[in-house]
Amino acid sequence: MVRYHQGALVGVLPAGRHRRRWGASDVPVDLRRSWIRVAPQEIPSSDGIHVKVSAAVLHSVGDPVAYLELTDDPRATVYLAAQVALREALAGLTADELVQRQSVLPVRAMVEAVRSVAATVGVEVHEIVVKDVVLPPEIRSAALDLATAQKRAQVQLEAARAETAALRAQANAAKLLDDHPALAQLRLIQSAPCGTKLVIQVGDTASLTEAASTD
């Protein structure tokens, strides 16, 4: 609460109840933190792509007297300072760097730039958050095509790996059956469908034929 007496500043009153004398007027000032939302700004990146960037400024009143007396709209002053800081801080980045905002955006430099201007109108800036980075439609379409192609290539690579593993397993199985004929016969019996009539021959065919002619 800022008190004036007959138009002259008396001072800033602390929280609580106060007597008001004749000719005095009190102007309430909200000291709570609040956000100023900066509308999307079209910023040309260093690689020539115009990107729309929006932000929000967390602020509070630091000097109630300056907040009331130095300008008729201190929030507009902070808003304009945030616009300028966004443009100056982000114009030197590429479009890819703007999209990867957490790691490369110079947020600290933006905060300091806006804070120095806001302090002149009694406002304290606590934080600046870059909300949205919107690329042109053709860039978004190209990025989607690239991501789709990469995913498709990954699927094809995994399919090729699975096919290679299957062929390798079949080759190992064929070699095992060649080395063990009895295992091959057992595998053949196991693969026969239910109801199949099997003729099992014990011993060598040639030996059996020679024995039969001798008799």
Rank of each mutant, 00 (worst) to 15 (best):
S45A: 14
S45E: 00
A81P: 07
A85V: 05
D63C: 08
H59F: 13
R20Y: 06
L68M: 03
P28W: 09
E69W: 07
Y67C: 06
V84A: 12
L68S: 07
L80H: 15
P44G: 02
Q41A: 06
A76D: 15
L58K: 13
D30L: 11
R32I: 07
T77E: 14
R20L: 15
D30H: 13
A85I: 05
E69D: 13
L86N: 00
A55Q: 01
P14L: 08
K52F: 02
D63N: 15
V27M: 09
R32G: 15
H50C: 03
P44L: 06
R75A: 15
A85W: 05
A56D: 09
L31P: 09
P28C: 06
R32M: 09
L70H: 13
I49S: 00
V57Y: 03
L80Y: 12
V27E: 12
A24T: 11
D47G: 02
L68V: 08
A55E: 03
R21N: 09
Y67S: 05
P14W: 04
I49F: 00
A24D: 14
S34N: 08
L13N: 04
P28L: 02
H50Q: 06
P44F: 05
L31T: 12
Q41N: 00
H59C: 14
V29P: 08
R20M: 12
I36S: 11
V57S: 01
L68K: 03
